[in-house]
């Protein structure tokens, strides 16, 4: 019984950032972390560091696509600062540009999921299109603060 409680507590603690992300700043940071993890799978695949796995690739593209859903809502007014946010003020001053950048990422990842590449060459075509979104969006809408 004691163990069960302890384990449940431990599990809750480990899972808590996901379950109770709290502030929008933290939520969007977690979302971006999930994208980074998915990118790890894709980039290592592209580099040939891991063997081609169509299912893993599809899952990673899907994770990225999921991240774009409701993503712009995680940047409400009043969350321009705090919680080590690296969000650029441009997200609020150029909302249309920001939203269309997120839409583009949504479309490119959705196309990649639909394409369901079965080999490395087909994958690289989709990967190239998807990966470009990272730097394009971060060029304009992220500011490094430390």
């Amino acid at each position: 019984m004691k163990y069960t409680v302890a384990l449940t507590l431990a599990a809750a603690l480990v899972a808590s950032p996901v379950l109770a992300a709290g502030t929008p700043q933290e939520e969007r940071q977690l979302t971006m972390k999930s994208v980074g993890q998915a990118m790890g799978t894709l980039a290592k695949t592209a580099k040939g560091e891991i063997n081609y796995d169509a299912a893993a690739v599809a899952k990673a593209f899907q994770t990225m696509n999921d991240a774009t859903k409701n993503f712009v809502e995680k940047f409400p007014e009043g969350t321009e600062t705090g919680h080590d946010t690296e969000a650029s003020p441009k997200i609020w001053s150029d909302r249309t540009g920001f939203e269309s950048a997120v839409d583009k990422f949504g479309n490119d990842t959705s196309n990649a999921v639909a394409a369901a590449p079965q080999d490395l060459d087909a994958f690289k075509v989709q990967f190239g299109k998807v990966a470009k979104n990272c730097s394009t969006c971060h060029e304009a809408y992220r500011v490094k603060k430390n």
Binding site: G36, M39, A131, H138, R142, K144
Partner: peptide, 11 residues
């Protein structure tokens, strides 16, 4: 443009 954590280049 990717860091070891697969964060991307920005700014």
């Amino acid at each position: 443009g990717f860091t070891p954590d697969f964060d991307s280049v920005g700014g």
